[in-house]
């Protein structure tokens, strides 16, 4: 976790990070001495680093599963399956002039990725149902208000129930969303932004230690 570099190396790293931060902040504030092209170059480097990190992650995953297959570790069959599918999709994308829009890649997307992602995401509905069954109860502390708010919101935002709900109740929900919920949301946004700012400063400043 902790850096084993020497103190002066840490300080150089801190100076580079601080210079980059100063440059980007100056460009954002429109200060004259900060050339926007330099900030754009830094952003481009970040883009390159992101792409390289992605490739590194892919290479690491392949190597990890290759070693698992080579050593015959537990459930190595799944690792082998992953490597085969990776090779197929990668080969289809590289060999076809369509690239990622190659027919095989498209088929994998439509038949495997899209249904798989949708299925996993749909599972959250069951977790939501279980949580609502166990915790949305009026005899918990403050539970009556939470329960009333959740039920009202569900009723108003459901096409079938929406027609049954009186207009005054819809107005109440609009008022709730536009005033108290909005006030809380803005407070959360501002507080979160300030928190991120100070944590970033703290991280940068503690980098020299």
């Amino acid at each position: 976790m902790f850096s084993s570099r020497s103190n002066w190396q840490n300080r150089i790293g801190l100076l580079v990070a601080a210079a980059c931060a100063l440059l980007v902040i100056s460009v954002r504030f429109g200060l004259a001495f900060a050339p926007p092209a330099a900030a754009a170059t830094l952003y481009g480097w970040a883009l390159l680093l992101g792409g390289f990190a992605l490739l590194l992650g892919i290479a690491n995953a392949i190597w990890h599963h290759f070693v698992r297959v080579q050593r015959g570790q537990r459930e190595w069959g799944f690792s082998l399956l992953l490597l085969i599918v990776f090779a197929l999709v990668f080969g289809a994308g590289v060999s076809s002039p369509g690239g990622s829009a190659a027919p095989l890649a498209e088929w994998v997307f439509d038949a495997v990725i899209a249904p798989g992602q949708a299925t996993l995401y749909a599972l959250t509905g069951f977790f939501l149902l279980g949580a609502a069954y166990r915790f949305l109860r009026f005899n918990r502390p403050g539970g009556l208000w939470i329960l009333a708010g959740a039920l009202l919101m569900l009723l108003v935002q459901t096409p079938f129930f929406y027609r049954l709900v009186p207009a005054a109740l819809v107005g109440l929900l609009d008022w709730l969303l536009n005033w108290p919920v909005m006030a809380a949301m803005r407070g959360v946004l501002l507080g979160g932004a300030l928190g991120v700012l100070f944590i970033s400063l703290r991280l940068i400043m503690s980098g020299a230690k």
Binding site: A40, Y43, L47, L49, G50, A53
Partner: peptide, 14 residues
């Protein structure tokens, strides 16, 4: 476009 939030400003700047 890789890079997450760090690479987004490039879409605005260049």
């Amino acid at each position: 476009l890789p890079g997450g939030a760090a690479s987004l400003p490039l879409l605005g700047a260049a």
